[in-house]
Each structure stands twice: as C-alpha cells, then as structure tokens.
C-alpha cells in the first residue's frame, strides 16, 4: 500500500529556520535507510506558508489569500511517499524518523486513494480527462 507521510509545520519551520547540520545529516541517513529498504518512492520539503497562496471557493467566487496562514499546527512542512506492506510497517518506520523539528513536532500518516476507490463514480469521460492530466503530470 502507498502512504503519504506529512511532516507537520511548527513555529520554527514557518519562520523558515534552517535545520541544524546534525539534523540534515540524521535525516540524510534516515532517507538512505528508507531507500535501502525499498519503501521510499518520493518526497520533498516545502517552503514556509508565507510563500504560499490559498484559493477560497464559494459557488462561482474565487478569492486569493496570501500566506502565511494562521493555524501553524495544521500546515505541512514536507512529505514522503512510501510503499509499505501495511500501516504497522509505516508506523514502525515513522517512529524511527529523527525529530524533524527543533521542538515538539508531528508526522501524519495517510493511506493514498487508488483509482479503484473511484470506480463507482468514474465515467469514461472522467477517465479520459484523468488520462490526459496524469500523462501531463508525468512531464511528457
């Protein structure tokens, strides 16, 4: 199964504080372990929400909201995509992650939806559009 692991933001990450040399090294070793175990299939860090934008939808209305966003603990500072056998394995790996932040922090593990989960509502037209989009996503 595929799982996205979110690194939740903190005051430090939102201020754009650079990680310490120790953390960079520890995280590098951890990523190496994930790769060597064959479970890491992707991931990236995100810049603070001060550089982000939000679009609020209300019927036909679209409003742009500039970052930073207030609810720091609900924001995301980075993510991995893992392929694991089950949530137990994902949890075991997540627990051995070095604390990604200088203070208290959280990881959030969420299983990924697959196309099968949409089978009931997916029409041939919908599938066609997804085909186009996903192919573009692949950078072709």
């Amino acid at each position: 199964m595929r799982v996205v692991v979110f690194v939740k933001a903190t005051e430090d990450s939102e201020q754009g504080a650079l990680p310490s040399a120790e953390l960079i090294e520890a995280m590098g070793k951890y990523n190496e372990e994930l790769i060597n175990a064959g479970i890491m299939v992707g991931g990236d860090g995100l810049k603070p929400s001060s550089q982000g934008k939000r679009i609020a939808f209300d019927g036909p209305g679209r409003t742009v909201i500039d970052g930073p966003f207030a609810e720091t603990r609900e924001l995301v500072a980075g993510f991995w995509i893992w392929e694991v056998k089950d949530m137990d394995e994902a949890l075991a790996w997540a627990k051995r992650c070095p604390n990604p932040m200088p203070g208290p922090s959280e990881l959030e593990l969420r299983p990924v939806v697959s196309m099968e989960d949409f089978a009931e509502t997916m029409t041939p037209e919908g599938a066609e559009i997804h085909a186009r989009n996903e192919q573009r996503l692949a950078g072709q």
Binding site: R2, G42, I81, M115, H130, A131, E134, Q135, A138
Partner: peptide, 10 residues
C-alpha cells in the same frame, strides 16, 4: 485505460 497507469511508478 491509461488513466489507471500509475504515474509515480512510471
């Protein structure tokens, strides 16, 4: 249905 091809694996 190529929409179901896994783009991450590709």
């Amino acid at each position: 249905n190529r929409a179901r091809w896994d783009q991450l694996l590709i």
